[in-house]
Amino acid sequence: MIDINDWPVLAKIILVTGPFVIGLPGPAILAFLVLRKDYDIACSAIKSNPYLESIKQAWGGRRFKWRWMLMCTIAGLITFPGLALRRGKLDADELKRFPAALKIKLALATWLTLMGCVWMIVAYALLELSKGR
């Protein structure tokens, strides 16, 4: 069984703070992109996805929260386009024409957020396993 109580203090601190150090920059990057002209570029670059178009009309141009949620949706679509491409809900040429620098920023933000969430789940599991002892 895993016993976290036997770990050095530094390892415990890294285990607990790691998800926040890794995961929080992702949403912060997306918030930064929303406040810049990158938001308009990202919204105008994809027109073929019907779901994205409907939430652009519902959320776009309003308060910061809705713009940030729309940017998160675009980041997910750009980072993991496989299902949308297979179903014909995204044009492959449109995805290729998406600005490369913005695509990298969106992918970085998505992966940082996902890695932070995975780390948090693993840390929680380790803490629960340590309690069972």
Rank of each mutant, 00 (worst) to 15 (best):
A42S: 09
L15A: 11
F32R: 14
L24H: 10
I29W: 03
G26P: 06
D40S: 14
A28N: 10
R36D: 12
T17S: 13
W59M: 14
Y39H: 13
R36Q: 12
I55P: 00
S48Q: 02
N49Q: 09
P50M: 12
L52W: 07
F32Q: 10
S54A: 15
I29P: 00
A42I: 03
G60M: 01
C43W: 04
P50C: 12
A45I: 00
P25C: 05
Y39C: 06
P25V: 03
Y39L: 04
V34Q: 10
L15W: 02
I46F: 10
S48E: 03
L30G: 01
L33S: 00
A42C: 04
G26Y: 01
G18Q: 02
K12P: 14
I22D: 12
L24T: 09
N49E: 10
I46C: 14
A58Y: 08
E53L: 08
A58T: 05
A42Q: 08
P19E: 01
S48F: 06
Y51S: 12
I46Y: 09
V21A: 10
L15G: 02
L52D: 11
K56E: 08
P27F: 08
S44L: 13
P25T: 00
F20S: 13
V34W: 00
K12W: 02
I46N: 07
L15M: 08
G18I: 04
D40V: 04
G60P: 04
D38R: 11
F20K: 10
S48G: 06
S48H: 06
A42M: 09
L24C: 12
K12F: 11
A45G: 07
K56A: 05
L30C: 10
I41W: 03
I14A: 13
F32K: 06
P50W: 08
A42R: 10
A31P: 00
K37F: 12
A58C: 00
A45H: 02
D38M: 03
S44E: 14
C43G: 07
C43N: 14
A31T: 06
R36M: 13
A31G: 13
A58Q: 14
I29R: 00
I41A: 06
Q57S: 10
W59H: 11
K37Q: 15
N49R: 08
T17I: 15
L33H: 01
I29F: 00
R36T: 15
W59I: 15
G26E: 03
P27D: 04
S44P: 01
S44Y: 07
P25D: 00
K47F: 01
Q57L: 11
A28T: 01
I14H: 03
L24D: 04
S54Q: 14
A42Y: 05
V21M: 08
F20N: 10
W59S: 07
P27I: 04
Q57E: 15
P27C: 12
N49G: 11
V34D: 04
L30M: 09
G26F: 05
N49A: 13
F20R: 09
K56H: 05
L15S: 07
L33C: 01
P50L: 09
G60D: 06
C43L: 14
L33V: 07
G18T: 01
N49H: 13
I13H: 11
L30S: 00
L35Q: 11
K56L: 13
K37P: 01
A31E: 03
K56T: 05
